[in-house]
Computed example of a mutant assay.
Amino acid sequence: MTRPTRTLPVKRAAHVYLVRDGHLLLVEERMDDGSIFYGLPGGKANPGETLGDAAVRQVQYETGLTVTDLTFVSLLEGELLSGTRNECYATFGRFTAQAHGEIDPSDPEVVGVKWVPFAQVEGLVRYGPPPECEERNPLIWVPTRDFLSGEARSYYPI
């Protein structure tokens, strides 16, 4: 287990792999620089909230879908964004689930929700600046790459 070298803020988040006919559901969000970010539905856990409960709540908020049969896939853990204003100790849970309902996001940051063929997911991910943004860190996407290839591990040190 990776241990922090100093006291860091803790960030806990959960994301869900929703799969249908070889497609993965991604949300489109507008970044501060105006670009579009494609990511998994999910987000930060509230204080005292389990990662599973956060996953269910955030998927509903970002997509309008209700998820059931939540199943743990993997955990990412470790220091993230070291040397930036957003450095933290991250604990990110990844789950699968069944989705029900109609796509109707209520999160104002979500500008779209789309089913993306597995082969096209990686091409939508933008790595690189700004460095303060964990979504653009390639390490965050390793578990998704493994999941899509059927080789997910249960633990990923960051």
Rank of each mutant, 00 (worst) to 15 (best):
S82M: 10
D69V: 01
P47G: 06
F92P: 00
A54C: 14
E87Y: 11
P41L: 09
V116P: 03
F118S: 00
P108N: 08
D32Y: 13
P117N: 00
R85T: 14
A97E: 09
E62H: 10
R94S: 09
E29G: 07
T96V: 11
G48F: 09
V113F: 03
E62Y: 12
T96K: 00
G34H: 11
F72E: 06
K114R: 07
F37S: 12
R126T: 04
F37Q: 11
A55I: 08
E87T: 03
E29N: 06
E102V: 15
A45N: 06
V59R: 05
E28I: 06
L51T: 01
E28D: 13
Y89S: 09
F118T: 01
R30Y: 05
T50E: 08
I103E: 01
A54E: 12
P105Q: 02
I36T: 05
G112L: 04
E49R: 07
A90N: 07
D69Y: 02
S82C: 08
R126V: 05
T66S: 13
Q60R: 12
G52F: 13
R57E: 03
L80R: 15
E62V: 06
R85C: 08
V111E: 06
G101V: 09
E49D: 00
I36D: 11
W115V: 02
S74T: 08
D104I: 00
S74I: 07
L76S: 14
A54S: 15
G48H: 09
W115Q: 03
T91E: 14
P41K: 10
A55S: 09
T96M: 08
G42S: 00
E87L: 07
V67K: 00
S106T: 15
I36Y: 11
S35E: 12
Q58Y: 06
G48C: 05
T84W: 01
G52S: 09
G39K: 01
V113A: 06
V73H: 11
E102G: 10
D33P: 05
N86R: 14
M31G: 07
A99H: 06
V125N: 08
G52Q: 14
Y38A: 05
E79H: 13
E49A: 00
D69C: 03
F37K: 12
E77A: 11
L81P: 02
E62A: 04
I103F: 10
G43V: 04
A99T: 02
I103C: 05
Y127I: 02
P41T: 01
V59K: 04
G101K: 13
E62F: 13
R126M: 04
E122S: 07
L80V: 07
A99W: 07
S35K: 15
E102K: 13
